[in-house]
Nucleic acid binder design. Structure first.
Lengths: 346, 346
DNA sequence: CTGTTAGCGCATTCAT
DNA sequence: ATGAATGCGCTAACAG
């Protein structure tokens, strides 16, 4: 075990009090003669002094750290959000503790607890837990939380959300404008508010166009035990298979997210259905890969990176005791037109 | 500000000493009468006691946290590694601080410093810094580090690496076996050891087959200011463009990583060159998306998730003072055959 | 300007 | 089995 050098060691070496050393080494604006200041800084360097932040933080009650809880960092949407969060955190000299819940609400609650015990006062979370009691308890004790992506109905929780419903509407609208009337919707289970909203947006657009929904064209996966990219993809394939088996096929497929859309496209290729000539496909999210696939995916952009930056900025605002301004921000969807959508075949 | 309740508050409430409270609430194996134990636990619950880990950690000198430094979490390779790391960390009741360097060695060094000051004693790092002095300094002071992906030539640094050279060999070998002799190599700048190794593997296979390298078929990007997925992709497109402009075209293209391969495939599609009928493409990494693109990408698997788990396990071994066993582990490449490679056209 | 003192919350040694 | 006392490393009154 290395015994680390403390401000007292330095104080002894330079023959001053540890208070003076602290003032110098913590860049306090407290006045210290420049002579002593130099001597102390030199000694610190010579003795390879490393400040112990635990001591400082215990004293000042600031952990200079925020927590981020997401389902899986492996999901490109969350990794972009994370990048945004970390960037503004770093600019504020804060670090980030990353927690993956893997869709397990027990893990989620464990992490909330650990975070608060570590004296972390700020949390950004995309929660999948149906029960928010744990979170609520810690909020009462002073935890500040920003909910991203998935809404949390709790007092004092600010939201950085996304207008999923409008996004669903926009995507469907786009297909409609291209001349499609037979539009399928392919989705993972509607077990999260966000997913329901996208579906509602789809319905909104259909209704507005006076088109009756064909229940056969709405394919909802029954259950998914994990939401890894690969199972979203498989899901898209399977449901597309069902769609293609129908007597009356749609001419366009709207997938609930990009990863599912990749599965759709792959199954279409398997069955030699050309995209977009014979079948149009539109996704949702605009993850980085959407423009890398062939044909490049037309999709609805969800500003992931910006969402992370915004969420983190909001968090610092409330940590700094900024007056409670807007309780939530709703980011707007944007249609990204690429190559996977065309007019329907005659 | 919330004033938090401490073991002293509880001690007062139950009329015992804070030492006893500490023994109970920290699950010490120190004997305490079950009567007192119950009373104390009840009081802790009633008073909504939250242990302050800073106090505990300052005392015990254990931060129960590890640091992870990667270029960008947005790169699917690193996010998978991260998931693996976090999983074994969590099983050991450790948390993870995530740091993105964005290819900036200043940021990297800053983070190493911050990590050690926070009394974090374990670090897993994929370093892009040419200068390892900072790291070396902290290692002398007791920091334990595992290098992943990118090698670090420093004493006491254990490596969890990947046999890039063999991977490059395997990929080229596969193309050769399919009958290709005109094999191009498309790569980002060879500024990292890992990239150089893949290239060497390519050369190994060519040499073994008695094929002379055609310099025109080795396309190296001059410089990239960022290594985001999108610029890797663009890079692949641009270099493919150059390749297709050649009088003597290759029949197969080996890309230095999957994201670059996506760019290759896209440019081929743009120019109506069919994959794999007219041109075979092979990637490197086997990120999750490789099987989602159309045609699914044949590639060399780099076991990212396992690498994360392994690195973290090794880290805990040395943190636990396990005797210094193997200094490094070299994970083996594996060829993943999918749809983007076929025999060359006649 | 500099030093003395106290205490952040906790675990732990040493008494009892 | 319990309590008193000490100190982890640091900052921040307060005093001089």
């Amino acid at each position: 075990m290395h015994k680390s050098v403390t401000i007292h060691d330095i104080a002894k070496a330079v023959n001053v009090s540890s208070a003076t050393v602290s003032r110098v080494l913590s860049n306090s604006d407290y006045p210290v003669s420049s002579e002593l200041k130099m001597k102390i800084q030199q000694a610190a360097k010579d003795m390879a002094y490393v400040p112990n932040m635990l001591g400082k933080q215990l004293k000042t009650k600031q952990s200079r750290m925020i927590g981020v809880i997401v389902p899986t960092i492996t999901n490109p949407f969350y990794s972009s959000v994370m990048l945004g969060i970390e960037e503004v955190a770093r600019k504020n000299d804060f670090q980030v503790m990353l927690c993956n819940t893997l869709q397990d609400s027990k893990v989620e609650n464990e992490y909330v607890k650990t975070i608060f015990e570590k004296q972390i006062k700020g949390l950004i979370i995309s929660s999948i837990s149906p029960d928010q009691n744990t979170l609520s308890d810690y909020i009462k004790l002073g935890l500040k939380v920003i909910a991203i992506d998935q809404q949390i109905d709790l007092d004092h929780v600010r939201q950085v959300g996304f207008d999923y419903r409008k996004g669903g509407y926009l995507a469907t609208r786009h297909l409609l404008k291209k001349g499609h009337t037979k539009i399928a919707y392919v989705t993972a289970p509607l077990d999260r508010p966000s997913r329901k909203s996208v579906y509602e947006g789809y319905m909104d657009a259909l209704r507005e166009a006076g088109i009756e929904r064909n229940p056969e064209w709405v394919r909802v996966e029954g259950e998914m035990n994990d939401y890894s990219g690969i199972s979203e993809y498989e899901n898209g394939r399977r449901l597309t298979c069902e769609l293609l088996a129908l007597a009356d096929r749609p001419t366009a497929i709207f997938a609930c997210n990009d990863m599912t859309a990749f599965g759709v496209i792959n199954e279409l290729a398997n069955q030699s259905v050309r995209v977009p000539e014979e079948m149009s496909v539109i996704g949702f999210d605009d993850i980085e890969f959407s423009r890398m696939v062939t044909p490049a995916l037309t999709t609805v952009r969800q500003p992931d990176y910006e969402m992370g930056k915004l969420a983190c900025s909001m968090l610092f605002d409330i940590l700094d005791g900024e007056k409670e301004q807007e309780m939530g921000i709703m980011l707007q969807p944007k249609l990204i037109e690429r190559q996977s959508v065309a007019a329907p075949p005659d």
